[in-house]
Design a protein around this nucleic acid. Structure first.
Lengths: 359, 359
DNA sequence: CTGAAAGCGCTTACAG
DNA sequence: CTGAAAGCGCTTACAG
């Protein structure tokens, strides 16, 4: 091979650059990593050669020396069928990715059926040194993953409320604020009988929201609260709606813990011959395109999920650089976006259809 | 440290196992990789020690020696806002992941705004030896990524039709079969004026479907075909529907290239005072939970997307082992799932609402 | 400011 | 059947 070119079919290494630039491999490493130890002139020459032959560091070699995988892991613990209906995950992925790829950190993704599998995956990644840290989502009130991550000393970011007794940084938002906004709004419209269709009972944030709902009912002196527990699926959302709306003391408004159930409720209302919003107001505690895809569009609590993901990624990256505990960060609370699915209850409206007095 | 235990806070290495088992590191490697060169007895002892101390190979070290990253990459080329509305991607991820994690191969995920960024990401991953191969989705008719992947010699699997002139294995299904099923069904119901709302014109599979649609119109001798091009979004789906249904010769049935637009069409129909399916039948060429979330539920072409993803992953893994071209694989074609959004056109039905004669 | 050398944790011919 | 050694492509003290 003439002139010491780079071998075919073999990606360039630091040794190639050293040869072409007439320096030692060590000097190349210093130059390319912007560290002292090489003159500006030499550095420029080395960088030029590296650019020319399109050199990129072999991550395996780098990982081996610096003990950094330059990757973080995320195990989504969900059953396949329910996965993907809520746009939440893809939006979060997009946000995470935006921040991670800018930092040259790869995202390893795995889908697991339950916490045991998720924990096994995290253990495996960590033992193989595939990852430098993990992102934990869908947090339970007493989440077994948190203990495992703490025990193994894996840097992590919690997407959700900070866990009591844990130093893991969390990225969270004030759920109460959103719930209050919904309840205040419905009450202002004249609703006094408002039901709450909750998501997975094991999730910490389900608990927080239910508490906020109960507090709001109390604060406003509304009719007795009703909470139905579900697993976030369409089927259970439909079932909850049917049960609530066929009871003697049916509510005039129902708040659903996610977009899927709220949208599904529209179908059930139609099935029961009920008009939305005249006979029933519907609110989704999690907004998405789903809510505007239907008619009437569904009033929802909205927030920038991609930005939330970016903040989570940023926090994990900061944690990796810090080599020690860092504080949690609070994201913006959700904002209420009123749409066609909410209105004053029928009994509270004037015959001519004018607006009811706000209380 | 007594008895040669494994150092705290430092994951076990092959050297630790060798020391504990009283053999050389080389022997440990042979034993753990199931290769000849160690007696059964020694092997058993080594494996026992490895299990006991929870040893897992350091992927960086292994990658460096065997030149395999044990990871594959997937760059999703979509704009953030449109990402996640179609459950397609999450289902595909779940399917890919199922197969990959069983093989101990990690999935690197990145979200890119366009092909240039996607190509840059693939180049970068490859140059850094982060990946052994890539998964290419959303294929264009003349896709620039295919050329790049071929040029760099990156093992790849195409999720879509085999590209003419390319040896890259593809995992695909017969789009024509599905389109024919839809058209035959609508014609059987009595529809003669059927419009097609196509997805992104740059996508190869959009083209295939449109051709199949045109051929079906011709074959059945239907009224002049109408194709509206869109970008798959709700907004453009709504716009297309509005345009089609406010024209003089409006169709009695519209087929949409994805679930989102078909579902959005329900809202537009309501807005225009049209009844679905009486005044307009709606079909989605891609099924998802979205289609059953609404009322009426949307008739759709359904297939197991997770299984499709698994097949793609399996094909890529096989390609990695083959070290040479492998054949493409064909998945099952989509099946039509009739739901409430389709019925005979109003003019074809009997006054009493009985079923029209099937032609 | 630069070069030579050791080492990260594996794998793999090569001797014995 | 086993051990000692070299090497994958980097980084990083350590001498000069």
């Amino acid at each position: 091979m003439p002139g010491g070119g780079v071998p075919i079919n073999k990606r360039a290494t630091i040794a190639d650059i050293a040869r072409l630039a007439g320096v030692s491999p060590g000097a190349v490493s210093y130059a390319l990593n912007g560290r002292p130890g090489v003159s500006d002139e030499t550095r420029a020459r080395i960088v030029a050669v590296a650019d020319e032959i399109g050199w990129r560091p072999n991550v395996a070699a780098r990982s081996l020396t610096v003990s950094r995988a330059q990757a973080v892991g995320w195990v989504i613990a969900r059953q396949t069928p329910t996965l993907g209906v809520e746009p939440f995950f893809m939006q979060l992925i997009a946000g995470l990715e935006r921040e991670l790829s800018a930092a040259g950190v790869a995202l390893l993704l795995q889908v697991a059926a339950d916490h045991d599998h998720a924990i096994a995956a995290i253990r495996s990644w960590w033992a193989e040194r595939r990852i430098d840290g993990v992102i934990l989502t869908d947090l339970w009130t007493d989440d077994p993953r948190v203990a495992v991550v703490a025990e193994l000393g894996i840097p992590a970011v919690l997407v959700g409320r900070p866990q009591p007794g844990s130093v893991l940084p969390a990225v969270w938002s004030d759920e109460r604020h959103g719930v209050d906004a919904v309840m205040d709004y419905l009450v202002a419209l004249g609703h006094r009988r408002i039901a709450w269709v909750a998501g997975l009972a094991t999730l910490d944030h389900t608990h927080v929201r239910v508490q906020a709902y109960l507090a709001a009912v109390e604060r406003h002196g509304l009719d007795a609260p009703t909470v139905v527990s579900t697993d976030y699926t369409r089927v259970q959302g439909e079932r909850a709606t049917r049960r609530l709306m066929t009871a003697a003391d049916r509510p005039t408004a129902i708040v659903y813990d996610n977009d899927v159930m709220a949208v599904a409720a529209l179908s059930v209302a139609r099935e029961l011959g009920l008009s939305v919003p005249d006979d029933l107001s519907i609110v989704a505690a999690e907004d998405s395109e789903l809510c505007v895809l239907v008619n009437p569009a569904v009033t929802a609590l909205s927030r920038d999920i991609a930005a939330y993901g970016s903040m989570a990624a940023r926090t994990l990256l900061d944690r990796l650089d810090a080599e020690g505990p860092i504080p949690s960060r609070q994201d913006h609370a959700s904002e209420l976006v009123p749409r066609g699915s909410t209105a004053p209850p029928a009994h509270a409206r004037r015959p001519a259809g004018t607006r009811a007095e706000r209380s």
